[in-house]
Design a protein around this nucleic acid. Structure first.
Lengths: 151, 151
DNA sequence: TCTATATAAATGCAAATGCATTGAATGGAG
DNA sequence: CTCCATTCAATGCATTTGCATTTATATAGA
């Protein structure tokens, strides 16, 4: 248990991290909205589902991957389903569960989201730092992760 | 206008940044909740008001500083006022505006928030990286800021 | 001065979120 | 087999957010 107050360096890095991450998200969301596209959260889910292929994923697997609360995923999937971007299939060996699979329309939406999202990443990160610096940044952030990544 | 897709390094750094920043916020919010304290956003506002001293700040000045929407600040201030943590004073030379000042109770709440918040920063940032690394992290993040900081 | 435009702050309404709980099904202990 | 604790997913309700608009005042222009 840490008793001493945080070092000035820690506070400065924290403040930067908080401010920058919010700025980046906000700008990206703005870019998506400007194109009439759904929010960032939709991309994450569609991405995971696209990666998982035809088998799809169980909602609880999605919860682990996208770092959202169970009820958030439940409702997000309901919206995605209402929009025809995913479909829910009963799963044979577990009557409680379902498998969620991305639809062709979902893949198309993901593609369009990526066109904007990827561009935002290029402009907001890729263009600002060199490859070496980006790796260094990722490395430092990895050490803050839970669990930490020691490269 | 960037046409090419983002580099793998940029995507990796972006993903880390998004994930880590959300984890850190979530853990900090959890710690505050566990102590029965209000959310992080309250700290930011109370902090700015504490810094501004007895003169207080106009709501629109707060909007610039805390990176929130105008209506968010308006409502947050209403809650802070309802809790007696700030007070709103009419401002003589502009009938539209008001000046918001932190109350003694607000200073006390800020202090209690900081006890938990500062501890979180120590544990989640300060303890994970050296001072040199923290400075490097802040430096890299500064280049992503808008406007960028070139140290 | 009178009018138009701009700025400060609040608010109505719809949508999203957080929290706790529920319904449904499973799996293990006895 | 029966019962109970556990897991998967959805939902009711209160709070918060986002968006657009409103109210009120201030400032600039004709």
């Amino acid at each position: 248990m840490t008793k001493t107050p945080p070092s000035p360096e820690a506070v400065a890095a924290w403040a930067r991290l908080m401010r920058v991450s919010r700025q980046l998200v906000e700008k990206t969301e703005d870019a998506l909205k400007a194109e009439g596209l759904p929010p960032l959260g939709w991309y994450d889910v569609l991405h995971e589902l696209a990666e998982s292929g035809e088998e799809g994923l169980r909602p609880f697997e999605l919860v682990d991957r996208v770092l959202l609360a169970q009820y958030s995923v439940s409702r997000l999937l309901a919206r995605l389903e209402a929009d025809g971007l995913v479909e829910k299939l009963p799963v044979s060996d577990d009557g409680r569960g379902q498998t969620v699979r991305i639809t062709p329309s979902g893949r198309e939406t993901r593609r369009r989201l990526w066109a904007v999202y990827g561009k935002a990443i290029s402009e907001l990160m890729g263009d600002k730092l060199s490859a070496k610096e980006l790796e260094m940044l990722a490395g430092l952030l990895g050490r803050l992760r839970d669990p930490p990544i020691m490269e």
